[in-house]
Design a protein around this nucleic acid. Sequence first.
DNA 1: CAAATCCATGCGAGATTTTCGCAAAAATTC
DNA 2: GAATTTTTGCGAAAATCTCGCATGGATTTG
Lengths: 145, 145
Amino acid sequence: MAELDTFDYRLLELLQENSRMTGNELAQRVGLSSAACLRRVQRLRETGVIERDVAIVSPKVFGKKMMVIVLLTMERDRPDRYMLMRDEFAKMPEVVQCHHVTGAHDFVLRIQVSDMDEYSAFVDRVFHEPYIKRYESLAVLGSLK
Amino acid sequence: MAELDTFDYRLLELLQENSRMTGNELAQRVGLSSAACLRRVQRLRETGVIERDVAIVSPKVFGKKMMVIVLLTMERDRPDRYMLMRDEFAKMPEVVQCHHVTGAHDFVLRIQVSDMDEYSAFVDRVFHEPYIKRYESLAVLGSLK
DNA sequence: CAAATCCATGCGAGATTTTCGCAAAAATTC
DNA sequence: GAATTTTTGCGAAAATCTCGCATGGATTTG
């Protein structure tokens, strides 16, 4: 992608807030015609500046009311396992986020489950592996953003 | 909102992945007519099951290339500070996520900044408060989802 | 410095998508 | 099992998006 100008940034800002805004609404706010706005947005999508569009569903609805943050520490002698782990985490529906980090821990995971039972089962299934040295579970009491 | 049936859940699942899916595409996947799908989606939005729709912008574009996860521990004698802290975090653009958690730490923050300098400034400004006992920064090397 | 080239623009037609009224089918209530 | 309510599919109308085209401004080129 070439360079983004002020219009593009403004559009991104707006769409990050509400991606269902129509061409006319955008036009009104950025001071371009509807067509121009939509053409720009189209380009932003094609070039990957806008990666995707998602609906944000109220967490209550899915009944996945329990969120846990896990700090994972792997055995130091198996750095090759990192990528494999990551890929496996990617496939698990309970894992909504996975960060590979520096420092005392190796991974920070955000886990979404319905209840303690489901979490407990998840832990048994996933964390009791030889290359996992330690895990620390932080139950989330409340969140912002 | 009344009850959600299997169709609704399927629609939510799809829209969570890609909210730009058209009525026909949805129809094809859930086995209802386009109109029925769109009517349901409309209702899901109206009733707040779908809270909003957002565009996900590549973090690189905004120049916020650095992500840090911070484990925050507050002084135990000031639990009243928790809510105030939370509200303050909510206002900071660097804080993209904030979870209040149980366990050894009190908050887990996800911070997005352009570089080390900006992070350093952020730390000085925010974490050097008397009621903050300890903070641990985990730089994110890579992420999934 | 003018000519040529390049890009993004606005306009508007055409295509796609969404919304809505309606009658029929399905599900629910009594 | 009849009556009522809800949801469906269809299709028309409305809204939205896409695209070709000519124009105008900026940059490049000769």
